[in-house]
Nucleic acid binder design. Structure first.
Lengths: 107, 107
DNA sequence: CATTAAAATCGTAAAATTACGATATAAGGG
DNA sequence: CCCTTATATCGTAATTTTACGATTTTAATG
């Protein structure tokens, strides 16, 4: 993807987050974390038909996108949403395309 | 993806939009449309290192996600952002995770 | 009605993502 | 220390996405 070079680092970060959220399983994990505040990995695995290794991989994608945080807690890992990342994402989306489509119809 | 069944139609629509935006090329197309209001397909193709058929495919993804609209205009097609879709997306994101991460630090 | 121009669609190859089982790592408890 | 438990990582198969060239469709024009 040659074109990617034209994207600045903000856009790259944003695209990475959007891509991470664009997967239904990961989206559900986010919603589960939003509802329950924190979850241990095995709780997330249980809510899913997927193998533990697969869920772990999805969590890694979310972590690397800056959407969740994992803290080792004894033998387990406790995940929660990353407030900084999510706030940033919200700001980007809100500020994005500020008024190009606020009117009800397009030109 | 069995899990997808647990997602309601709103979440499916949202995930589709996020997935569409998660591709750097498509993200750039959106930014170009935001900047220029409208573009003919061939203008978008020219701004890209990709083949016309590839760009056309990306535009289809954006169209089906409800992010852009294309209107046939003579022999060409004129694309613009879909204000309804984008407004809906913004509302979803803004209302999403309403206060689970508004404080500066997580619990 | 043939020609041209622009875009969409089709078929397919290449690349990336997703998923799994197996294995490795880390922390706590006998 | 060994054992258990919870996760992460690795290697790899299956699926999906991305990209291309070729072809088709659509609309304007001579």
């Amino acid at each position: 993807m040659l074109q990617e070079q034209k994207l600045d680092s903000t856009d790259i970060r944003l695209a990475k987050m959007l891509k991470a959220l664009g997967n239904p399983i990961r989206f559900e994990i986010m919603e589960m974390l939003a509802a329950r505040q924190t979850c241990l990995t095995y709780e997330i695995v249980q809510s899913t038909p997927l193998a533990q290794s697969t869920v772990s991989q999805h969590l890694k994608v979310l972590r690397e996108a800056g959407l969740v945080r994992g803290e080792v807690e004894g033998p387990a890992t406790c995940y929660c949403l990353d407030p900084d990342g999510i706030r940033w994402l919200k700001e980007q989306i809100e500020g994005w395309l500020p008024d190009c489509c606020t009117p009800a119809t397009h030109r």
